[in-house]
């Protein structure tokens, strides 16, 4: 294979192997003192038993570290904005796609409702079983991708998706501000969350509500990204 220039490959490989050795030795040495280290996760699981939901990872992502999730949604929004800005015109790109055959069209028409139903289920039951907003949103976006590649004149309705995404983003911040107003800290849990409800669908206060909002936003953003990457105009 052609190497691009005279980079010292042996230097880099020696560096990498010695880093590997150092990391291994450090990890094995750390294992011997693991009983003396008190991890933050144990305390958090104790707090979660008082005011959390059955899925500890969901309550960490949405409630205990909810501000980080807001930042992650902002990063996704900026990436979708950057991809959308590069499409120079909004002409429909029917000449980009070829007419696909009958098997693909029939199968995708059959499969799309089940994929959407599964995505909505994963989104709504995110606080009781593994799953949540991110996974459910991306599942719905992959169903939309399946429809986009089988039908030539299918387009995601632009105004509806933009409205959904905007409403979801605004309501996340509004719920946080409502928690600030009622309970004196951002994203405070102001809906009733009894510990006796743990395991029920309506439990944990605002946690399932926020995860559904996150799922709607991620799903609509991924659909727009996928459509922008398929339909790009050739002329400038």
């Amino acid at each position: 294979m052609n190497f691009k220039r005279d980079i010292p490959v042996r230097t880099y490989s020696g560096f990498a192997l010695s880093a590997l050795l150092v990391l291994t030795i450090l990890t094995i040495l750390l294992q011997s003192s693991v009983e003396k280290i008190e991890r933050a996760g144990d305390k958090l699981l104790g707090i979660n038993a008082q005011e959390g939901v059955a899925n500890a990872v969901t309550s960490v992502v949405v409630y205990f570290r909810g501000f980080d999730t807001l930042g992650e949604i902002a990063v996704l929004f900026i990436a979708a904005l950057g991809i959308g800005l590069m499409v120079s015109s909004h002409k429909s790109a029917q000449r980009h796609k070829e007419e696909s055959n009958f098997i693909l069209q029939t199968a995708s028409k059959l499969l799309f409702p089940f994929i959407t139903l599964f995505g909505v289920y994963v989104m709504i039951y995110g606080h009781l079983s593994p799953g949540g907003g991110f996974q459910g949103g991306v599942i719905i976006a992959s169903g939309v991708l399946l429809l986009l590649i089988s039908y030539q004149n299918f387009e995601v309705p632009h105004a509806l998706i933009t409205a959904l995404e905007t409403l979801a983003g605004i309501s996340y911040v509004l719920i946080g501000l409502l928690g600030l107003w009622i309970l004196d800290h951002f994203l405070g849990n102001f809906l009733p969350s009894d510990i006796s409800d743990m395991g029920m669908l309506i439990s944990g206060g605002i946690i399932p509500l926020i995860y559904i909002i996150v799922g709607v936003k991620v799903g609509s953003e991924m659909s727009m990204i996928v459509q922008n990457l398929i339909q790009r105009s050739d002329d400038e």
């Binding site: 991890r39 933050a40 996760g41 958090l44 699981l45 979660n48 500890a56 990872v57 960490v60 992502v61």
Partner: peptide, 11 residues
């Protein structure tokens, strides 16, 4: 909630 792995790195 005892005897479980740490949930913070998962998040």
């Amino acid at each position: 909630f005892t005897g479980m792995n740490d949930p913070i790195p998962h998040a």
